[in-house]
Simulated assay, not measured.
Amino acid sequence: MASSLINRSHHIDFDFVFRFDDAEIVQMFESLITTGLKEFLGCPAIFHENDLTEFFANGSVRDGLVVSTIGGIAVEISESVFAATFGLPTEGLTDLLEVPRNLLSEAQSLFSVSEKEVSISCLKKEIKMQYRLLSDILAKSLFVKAGSFDAVTRDRFLLMTAITFDVKFNWGNLLFGVLKEMVTPDSRQAKGYAIQICVLLKNIPGLELGESKAFPAPRILNEKTVHRIVSVNENVGLEEVGEAPRAKKTPVKKTMSKKRQAAGEAEVAPVIKKKRSTKGKPVAARRISLDKQVEDATEDEEDTVEGTVDKVSHVPVQVAPIMDDVDMIIGQVISESAGLSANKTGGSTSKVVGEIVAPAASSKKRAEEHM
């Protein structure tokens, strides 16, 4: 709980900030003293974590007072006690809108980092370094704002104007109003004022505070930390950074899994057909089978020839015309037999021809005898 109350707060060590070598920043701190905020911003940097946690857990606002209980002891804080403890001015403006308009116009030119006037609501990069630092102090230590600090709000700009031109302001009323918002249940106001509340609790009669802790050194503004903050703020919103080209993205090569790649290669690669190997019969067996087929074909041809010859032999015997028909039939049979028996040996062909010629000769002899 306590860490959330101090993680954005600033405590100013006025004995050391004036050692900073920037005259404009030193002058800004001097204006805080002139305004009457030295005791509030530079009070002892000690806080009591457990007591502070209990104060906010039981805190509320009643009859304009901030009330709570710590260890069974009632705590009441009024606006007058609050202002007197830190020497805060109680006279002056109570409304930010009452800041003179002529001063506001001068601030718009004075705060600007360029020759152009800045808006009342602007970015920190648009104002000078000392006013960037002043804006952070107001946001973290007085208004206790949560969130981003890159922008300067209208209310903060008005307060910066009042501090810079030493406008009398009722700081007691303004800061006590912030404290009341802190202890109001369901309030959107962030909690803070850790070291200031502990200073107030020490003045409560009969209240004994527990173990104390020192405020974190990085949260204390002195010569060293101010130099670090300035270095960081110098890089806020620089045009060179904002206009820097984006780094090119490294192209990502799409890779396929080995399994998918193998499948692709299988599709592209030519398919090699394997020669079918059949188990055939031995050479001797195939030769015997071939001879058998030739022999069967020869027998069929012989039967055909013999049938043709028999038909010729039964033709009625006639004179010369018969002889012409016989010769024609013999020539036709010889021609057809030669085409069918091309694969036969020479001896087989001669045998067939001889068998055909012999009957034909005998038929011719018988015809001559009748004549």
Rank of each mutant, 00 (worst) to 15 (best):
S4G: 08
S9R: 02
H10E: 15
F14V: 08
Q27C: 07
L32S: 01
G36S: 10
P44V: 08
A45P: 04
N50S: 10
S60K: 03
A74R: 02
E76D: 14
S80Q: 12
A84T: 08
A84I: 09
T90W: 09
E91C: 11
L93E: 10
L96S: 07
L96Y: 08
S105C: 12
Q108G: 11
S114E: 14
Q130G: 04
Q130T: 05
R132Y: 13
L133T: 00
L134Y: 07
S141W: 12
K145T: 15
V152Q: 00
T161S: 13
T164V: 15
F169K: 01
W171M: 04
L174F: 13
G177Y: 06
P185W: 09
Q189L: 11
N203A: 15
L207C: 12
G210W: 07
P218R: 00
R228V: 15
V232M: 10
E240V: 13
A244E: 12
K253Q: 10
S257D: 15
K259T: 14
Q261E: 14
Q261P: 07
E265M: 09
A266P: 03
V268W: 08
K281N: 11
R286Y: 06
R286D: 15
V294K: 02
D296F: 05
E302H: 05
D303E: 11
T304Y: 05
V305Q: 01
V309T: 00
V317F: 02
V326N: 00
V333H: 00
V333A: 05
V333G: 04
T349F: 14
E355H: 04
K365A: 15
A367K: 00
A367W: 03
M371I: 10
